[in-house]
Amino acid sequence: METAVTKTGTEDKIWGGGNQPLKVSYGKMMMWFFILSDALTFSGFLAAYGFSRFKFIDSWPIADEVFNHFPFLHGVDAPMYYVALMTFILIFSSVTMVLAVDAGHQMKQKKVILYMFLTIIGGAIFVGSQAWEWKNFIKGEYGAIETRGGQILQFVDADGHRVKLEDIAIVDHHSDRAQHESKNGIWYDKEATLPTYTIAEIKAGFTKRKDIVLRTQILTDKGEKTILSREESLKRLNKDAIGIVEGANLVHNEYGTPLFANFFFFITGFHGFHVFSGVIINIIIFINVILGTYERRKNYEMVEKVGLYWHFVDLVWVFVFTFFYLV
């Protein structure tokens, strides 16, 4: 405490300056108020997400259909298992953090080192998992059609299973549509990456495949996407469809409204950035623990402070998990 907090020598006088009405050190109190303000920031984002979701309450993408990948299980529909695993990893790293704080109270340097190490590893695994989740989301799986009004139409077979674009398209090998890059066209202009197939190829394939129909964004009473009849599908495809969407970015999203992608990238990105900075801060404190800084200080309060931040990151994830994946 002596080196962490300046004593004024007037601790016994109420208005003397050194008084601690909340019975915590300045650093810890300010960590709490930082966490409060950060919590309000996250709440602002999540409430804005809720706003957009209520705005499109009958057409929001279904999370189970979006996040259904699991490492090494290609093509297996595994909704939520991976994100549940991520949640466990983060909760467990919170546990090791609180064990490190506990060991710090008892001045057990070796134990603090071990538990902080485990916490850092857990955090790193979590950030990696989030990157993998982003990769899958950006890459997409099935592809979809976008209409003039920006609506998404997806292909499903008779059983309601999604069908990939590559299984539908009849590739026209005579077409020679080239990617416009700044080096081969107008030098100051370039276009976005061309999709693998053209809308004409998809239309040609769809006309042949009589077993496939379209699915709109609109949710039925049961909370499932509306499936159009074969006639309606053909009509929508020929009349409204203007483009192909593969995967998701900030402008197009094969799973539904682009707002879903925007909020997903922004909120999980902001949270991931918090985890990342938490790992960095943990590493700094970890090095200090190894160097014996807190042994000499006879106080492990710094571990407690970064612990507060780390638990907060876990706390936010609990809410992000609920509102993005469960609700």
């Binding site: 409060l36 409430a47 209520f54 499109f56 309450i57």
Partner: peptide, 24 residues
């Protein structure tokens, strides 16, 4: 810490969700 957070967050959620529903 707790009351400030809970009060402001509940208020924000209330106004934004009401407004979102209205726009729908």
């Amino acid at each position: 810490v707790v009351w400030t957070g809970i009060f402001l967050v509940s208020y924000l959620i209330f106004i934004l969700l009401t407004e979102g529903d209205y726009i729908y």
